[in-house]
């Protein structure tokens, strides 16, 4: 009802502008999808052939029949999943610490964490590379996951969220005989679920789309994540088995992210609208 009412308020001009913007956004995606459904040979002379049938699933069959894309997909899932779980665990605990525990130099330490927001990844990439080389962590899952766990934004976000939860709840829990861990685990953590969902989705997406560090750290093709693997495949454009196959790989790679978007639409929209923190 409310949605209908607000829709009817849109002027035709606004509607047209929105449709246009949506079309511009969608065009490359649809183009990718159409190309992926064509025989490679049909696209050699003219990629415009994608606009007309016949279409085929041949390229997708090739992907499923032994190609490294599958391996890269698994790598991406492990790295993104691991990073997300790690970030949520660390940031929740750090947020609890900064928001609720009293310890020496708490403010100083928090400012120190916030300073991390101002340091670009590029500034530390060389020492980071050196460190991981020394620890022999390149070409390993820990090597791909660990740098993503240091997330000052997540710590800041969870701290602010926990601070907004009334302290009376902590006091009630203390009088209810709860230990600090029970307070964290049973009272505060469940109340931060909206923030966890938002932070989790963003971390997962950022990790899934990360390119630079995996490119540096994973030098063996069996340790590539999807982004690195697909980029490597596309750089060898001349030798690839064709445009259709490349595009099918791209579509295949975006399926998990598409699923995440569909599942967590609400949290993503809420985070974008900035209402996640009360």
């Amino acid at each position: 009802m409310a949605a209908e009412a607000s829709r009817s308020r849109w002027s035709p001009l606004t509607l047209l502008a929105i449709l246009l913007a949506a079309a511009v956004m969608l065009a490359p995606l649809i183009w990718t999808l159409l190309l992926s459904l064509k025989e490679n040979e049909a696209l050699i002379g003219n990629s415009g052939a994608a606009l007309s049938p016949p279409y085929t699933l041949e390229n997708y069959r090739s992907i499923l029949q032994g190609n490294q894309v599958f391996r890269w997909l698994v790598n991406s899932i492990i790295v993104s999943g691991g990073t997300t779980i790690g970030v949520l665990a660390l940031c929740s605990l750090a947020g609890f610490g900064f928001a609720r525990l009293d310890f020496p130099f708490r403010r100083t330490l928090f400012i120190f964490v916030l300073l991390g927001l101002a340091i670009p990844e590029q500034a530390v990439i060389l020492p980071q590379h050196q460190l991981f080389a020394d620890l022999r962590l390149h070409n390993s899952y820990p090597g791909l996951i660990l740098p993503g766990l240091a997330g000052p934004f997540g710590v800041f976000f969870m701290t602010q969220y926990m601070r907004a939860i009334p302290k009376e709840l902590d006091e009630a829990a203390m009088l209810d005989g709860a230990s600090r861990f029970t307070l964290f685990w049973k009272v505060l953590l469940p109340l931060t679920m909206p923030a966890q969902a938002t932070l989790g989705v963003f971390t997962f997406l950022a990790s899934w789309n990360a390119y630079w560090w995996p490119l540096i750290s994973a030098t063996r093709s069996d340790m590539y994540t999807l982004t690195v693997g697909l980029a490597a495949a596309q750089m060898n454009y001349a030798q690839t088995s064709g445009l259709g196959f490349l595009m099918a790989q791209a579509v295949f790679a975006s399926i998990p992210i598409f699923i995440v978007y569909v599942l967590f639409q609400k949290q993503i929209v809420r985070a974008m609208a900035g209402t996640a923190v009360r």
Binding site: E168, A173, L175, G177, P190
Partner: peptide, 20 residues
Amino acid sequence: VPPGDRGVAMVFQHYALYPH
């Protein structure tokens, strides 16, 4: 003694019920 072991119970001004 920790609050939970004192044998007292408190009703808070804003109730402080666990919302979840």
